[in-house]
Amino acid sequence: MFKKKEELDFANVDTIIGKDTEFSGTINGKGILRVDGKVTGEIITGDVLVGETGVVEANIKARHVTVSGTIKGNIEASGLLELMPSARLTGDIKVSNLSIGDGAYFKGACEMLSGDKSKENKGQEKK
């Protein structure tokens, strides 16, 4: 269904927030961010991976987001939001694709984004 190798290649992580590290502020980048520690603030980047020990208290805007840890904040993902079985997410999400593993916790509103803008425009033109 999804091209996991192509879309979710976390083998080449650009930035790591380690298990015993806390960061407060805005992270703005284009690469892959892995969080195993704690981040408070805002994350704007290409892809985000929150490990099992990761705690994020921030809004996230990214292409793909994979969560095994805890997030308190809103997520906007233009690609795939994947909640692994150990994930805990409290916040609203806007995503193109969503995968929730058995046992994952999610509390918030969900808006599914259309991947094809031309279909949205055609629908508006008919009104």
Rank of each mutant, 00 (worst) to 15 (best):
L80F: 08
D47A: 05
T70E: 14
G29S: 09
I75N: 03
N28C: 14
I100D: 07
T70V: 14
S24D: 03
I60E: 07
E82Y: 15
I43A: 08
K38D: 13
I44N: 06
E52K: 04
G51C: 08
C110T: 14
H64Y: 09
T70P: 03
G69K: 03
I60W: 03
N59A: 09
N59F: 10
T66P: 01
I60Q: 01
G73E: 15
K94Y: 09
N74A: 13
V50Y: 01
D92T: 11
R88N: 13
S24A: 09
T40N: 10
G91W: 15
I93T: 06
G69I: 14
G79F: 07
V56H: 00
G25F: 13
C110M: 00
G41C: 10
I43E: 00
D47F: 00
G54S: 08
L49N: 04
T66F: 05
G25L: 10
E57I: 14
S68H: 08
D47H: 11
D36R: 03
E42H: 14
S86L: 03
I75L: 06
M112D: 02
G79Q: 10
E42P: 01
L33A: 02
V39Q: 05
G73L: 15
E76K: 14
A77Y: 09
G103W: 02
A87K: 07
T45I: 08
V35W: 01
P85A: 01
L81K: 08
V48D: 03
K107Y: 06
I27C: 12
G54M: 12
K94L: 12
M112T: 15
G51E: 09
K94A: 12
G103K: 05
M84Y: 12
K72L: 13
G31M: 13
F23P: 00
E57W: 00
I60T: 12
G101N: 01
D36L: 12
E82P: 08
G101M: 00
E22H: 09
V35Y: 00
V50E: 00
I71E: 03
L113H: 11
G46L: 13
F106V: 09
L98G: 12
P85D: 06
E57M: 07
L89C: 12
T53A: 06
V95L: 07
K72I: 15
S86A: 08
V35F: 00
F106H: 06
R34K: 14
S24I: 10
Y105E: 08
I44V: 12
S114V: 02
S68C: 08
K30Q: 10
A58C: 09
K94N: 10
G103Q: 01
